[in-house]
Design a protein around this nucleic acid. Structure first.
Length: 435
RNA sequence: GGCGUGUUCGUCUAGCGGCCUAGGACAUCGCCCUCUCAAGGCGAAGAUCACGGGUUCAAAUCCCGUACACGCCA
């Protein structure tokens, strides 16, 4: 049985990279008629917020990626492995830390942050690998007692094997081997008693019977350590698949300064969820025939991990915009109107049945008054709203209502600067005709 | 600093030793169509497959090294 999961930390909105990871997990599960699980990794008490949880759930819902198990809202979840919020599972992590300690595979570490920093600097200065040297593992009971007496709270570390190598058999990258001597004794429980990311993730993926862990490339280096934890606990690790990163146009990791990175911003800009899925699906995955357009369930039907790209991909909003147009044109009239309405309203091109009749627009120093009562103008009624595309009289002579709306939706959704440019051109044309 | 991963048109990619004088898509440019279109049609330009060595009758494809980028340790 295929079981995948997306496990976000609620420390911000869902960004493009996270959205693609969610999508791939969902596609893989749907393709194989498996189960897609959502789990909230909220163990970072300082940075986790409820607003982030809400934003992430909203984003995934908007994308149309339904999950079979996981949170329903902030206070409830649904599924046979509940709870799906890690903060509600702390006892489980602690239980397994004790289990590892009893087996001699975990030990308390009393080193402070300053001490660790000093060790690392010294290691680098001496050109040794900057890996924790495991000194606390050799602490005597008496030394431990002294630390405890001094009020020091230990973190717990996992004891890695000293020699040999650990091989990760990744479904996308193939066999990758790591020298065990360079694998650090990972902290698995913080001094506060909470689990670290790497440990909670292992415990939960096992507890929730996740069969395939599909996640970002940044976790590849953590995987050998995680694999060792699975082994120490007597568990079979899931299959791993590490996705390449998404970069900005300048080749650096996609971030705020590249423009919109939040999924919700794309929603607000007028992009269709299906276009978003189509575009993100093709960012790092492709079919042998380089097919571009996928509608409805076609993506899930065609998806497979073998087609995943190893190298990172640059996010290209121009292509997304093109794809959005393709999806827009596939929409039926009803859906198209529903989609276009908020954008037309915001642009002042739709409103209650008694719309204001003029609108002033500044254009290269001169002020042109945009007349609403252009002869022969067409008004489109939809529900209790009238669409009045004042600035686009030319467009309105087109025969089909659908085409008119298509143009408007196209003009107004998706690319704000473009909308303004087109409006300006139209206004200029109108002024010249008047003069 | 160590380790890991990656490197095919501007961008997303096809390619798994001969079908590659490297294919498709977006973007770009030109022409056509059109009631001013994120429409359509036709066409052009764009990649010595990062670089350097090997292996082979034959390499974008296999091996080694170098450079650069990114990730992890942090």
């Amino acid at each position: 049985m295929i079981r995948t999961r997306f496990a976000p930390s609620p420390t911000g909105f869902l960004h493009i990279g996270g959205a693609r990871t969610t999508l791939y997990n969902w596609l893989f599960a749907r393709h194989h008629k498996g189960t897609f699980v959502l789990r909230i990794e909220d163990t970072d008490e300082v940075r986790s917020t409820e607003d982030s949880v809400t934003a992430i759930l909203d984003s995934i819902r908007w994308l149309g990626l339904d999950w079979d198990e996981g949170p329903v809202d902030l206070s409830s979840d649904r599924g046979p492995y509940a709870p799906y919020y890690q903060m509600k599972r702390l006892e489980l992590y602690q239980k397994h830390v004790k289990e590892l300690a009893a087996a001699g595979r975990a030990y308390p570490c009393y080193c402070s942050k300053d001490e660790l920093d000093a060790m690392r600097k010294a290691a680098i200065a001496e050109k040794r690998p900057a890996v924790y040297d495991g000194r606390c593992q050799r602490l005597t009971d008496r030394q431990k007692a002294e630390h405890e007496a001094a009020g020091r709270r230990p973190s717990w570390r996992f004891s890695m094997p000293e020699d040999g190598e650990t091989v990760v058999d990744d479904m996308i990258r193939g066999r990758v081997s790591f020298d065990n001597r360079l694998l650090p004794d990972l902290v698995i429980q913080k001094a506060t008693g909470g689990p670290t990311y790497n440990f909670a993730c292992v415990v939960d993926d096992h507890a929730m019977e996740i069969s395939h862990v599909i996640r970002g490339d940044e976790h590849l280096s953590n995987t050998p350590s995680q694999q060792r934890i699975y082994e120490a606990l007597g568990w079979t690790p899931p299959k791993f698949a590490h996705l390449s990163m998404i970069l900005g146009p300048d080749g650096s990791k996609l971030s705020k300064r590249h423009g919109a990175t939040s999924v919700l911003e794309y929603k607000a800009a007028g992009f269709l969820p299906s276009a978003m899925r189509n575009y993100l699906g093709l960012l790092g995955w492709s079919t042998t025939d380089s097919r571009q357009l996928f509608f409805g369930a076609e993506l899930a039907e065609a998806f497979d991990l073998a087609g995943c790209q190893k190298n990172p991909a640059v996010f290209d909003q121009t292509k997304l915009t093109w794809m959005n147009g393709e999806h827009l044109r596939k929409l039926g009239l009803e859906d198209l109107m529903a989609h276009a309405e908020p954008f037309l309203r915001a642009a002042g091109l739709a409103g209650p049945l008694d719309p204001p009749l003029d609108r002033t627009v500044a254009l290269e120093g001169e002020k042109c008054k945009l007349l609403a009562d252009i002869p022969g103008r067409v008004e489109i009624f939809y529900k209790d709203v009238v669409f009045t595309p004042k600035a686009m009289d030319g467009v309105l002579k087109k025969p089909g209502v659908k085409e008119v709306l298509l143009d408007m939706a196209g003009l107004l959704a998706g690319a704000e600067p473009f909308v303004e440019k087109v409006l300006e051109e139209k206004i200029r044309g109108y002024c010249e005709a008047k003069a």
